[in-house]
Write a protein that binds this DNA or RNA. Structure first.
Lengths: 261, 261
DNA sequence: CATTTTTGTCCGCTATAATGTACATGTGAT
DNA sequence: ATCACATGTACATTATAGCGGACAAAAATG
């Protein structure tokens, strides 16, 4: 079941993969692009991209927008995403949990998941401070940069974790190199304790708290996090962790519930 | 630019199309299914479906859920849909408009769009009546069955409308046949007046009001609707239409707004 | 103007993706 | 036990999808 890396210098890409590469690229760019630009920037043959874009357009997966023949993600994707959200109905409880956390702690609260082999903030509630600490929703961040990351991969064996996370993601934003073995150690610690906290390694003034939200198979399907100023976080550590655990417990009951069954 | 209809009895289906056929099918079913079931129900070769499902699984487009090898729409779709929603940032204003409508009229208010060649309720706010009139979100409904349908296709020439809407969608739920020409006439009337209202043809007790929400190119990108008991609707017709138009006007300002541009 | 770059279309070649078929296993009915 | 059916896998065949490259219009550049 482990995916083969494409070692071979690349033969022909499969249409489906190319298509989702295009979609992911547009999502990452967060703006409409011309087919030509897409081709150039993802390094794919122009003729292929043109053909795929036209196919996706005619399916409603992409839409013309922004003029000049630019395309962006289409309505169909919204509908499909809404169906996912509806099936794994975490949104309602999730918002409630974040609200509760924000009320109790006045800190920024986040609900995070994996997106492929990256970490992503799915929903967020800003804290009530004069200077709020905030994050972009839906941005892909290397797993090792985050507290949640330790929890989200904890169900995997060591070696699979190392295969799963791209090498370069252990290079921290300040240029330092995070030793994968110490990362693994932190993962195991997080797994044992059911939480992870640290002074953020992506900046110099925040402290992060993360606890798992366990899914169907019992491993962390998501995390709830608090992002706080360092001194506040350290001062309120126990209380904050209690709040997080309470909120996470409230989320763990209604995972997947089909309509009719 | 007009799409060719696939007259030919069908040769080989393209992977991409098959893939999105699978996704749409799962959305429609609103439940996890085994690959085998999918193949049988959409009438596709089993081997093809198995291959595609595996591809989609490895991309995060589909996910195992519900056990027994059943699959359903995956997290990646949620992320892509969220990016769409974020780009065409209608959600916030949309909820506000529905809230306002529900407050002012106490009737069920809906925000509707086309999904391919079907009509879909994207968001809804139930009215404040003891017996609420409600609809399922995200269900695909034939365009001719709905008041909004008249507005959503009004930008097309007559012939293209007839090409666009599947023949069988003119068969109403009560078995009657709606003459396409009278449908077209209603479309043109709706276009002239900038609204459409009628006693619903999908049941015997509701009256429907729809006004367009115009998008980039000036045609109805969506509609705002009220679904009311017949007598209330007819009694309050003018007021309700005013409320709808006011709410729609509030939505028409922020259509597509790229992040940086 | 001439020249270069960007953008979109068209077409032939061939690697390969979609398919049909056969096979293997599990499950339940008779 | 035997049969029927549902479910998943493996493989050879061949229609075609992805690709490269040619062409041309349009836009930018000099």
């Amino acid at each position: 079941m482990d995916a083969i890396q494409d070692e071979a210098v690349s033969k022909r890409a499969r249409g489906l993969d190319r298509a989702f590469e295009i979609l992911d690229f547009l999502r990452q760019k967060r703006q409409a692009l011309k087919p030509n630009e897409i081709a150039a920037q993802i390094g794919a043959p122009r003729s292929s991209v043109y053909e795929l874009v036209n196919l996706l357009l005619s399916n409603g997966i992409l839409e013309f927008t922004g003029g000049e023949g630019r395309v962006y993600l289409g309505r169909k994707l919204y509908f499909l995403g809404a169906a996912y959200e509806n099936h794994f109905d975490f949104t309602r409880e999730c918002e409630a949990a974040l609200e509760q956390l924000a009320d109790e702690t006045r800190e920024t609260a986040q609900f995070c998941m994996l997106d492929g082999n990256k970490y992503t903030v799915v929903r967020m509630r800003e804290g009530a401070r004069p200077f709020r600490i905030s994050t972009d929703i839906g941005q892909s961040v290397p797993i090792p940069w985050t507290a949640s990351g330790r929890l989200l991969v904890a169900h995997l064996p060591d070696q699979e974790i190392l295969n799963f996370i791209p090498q370069q993601d252990f290079r921290l934003p300040n240029g330092e190199w995070l030793d994968p073995q110490s990362f693994i150690a932190e993962v195991r610690q997080a797994e044992r304790e059911g939480l992870f906290t640290f002074n953020s390694i992506v900046d110099s003034f925040t402290h992060c708290f993360a606890v798992p939200v366990r899914g169907e198979q019992g491993h962390a399907a998501a995390t709830l996090c608090l992002v706080t100023p360092r001194d506040d976080g350290i001062a309120n550590r126990d209380r904050y962790l209690d709040c997080l655990k309470k909120a996470a417990a409230g989320l763990e009951h209604a995972p997947a519930r089909p309509r009719r069954g």
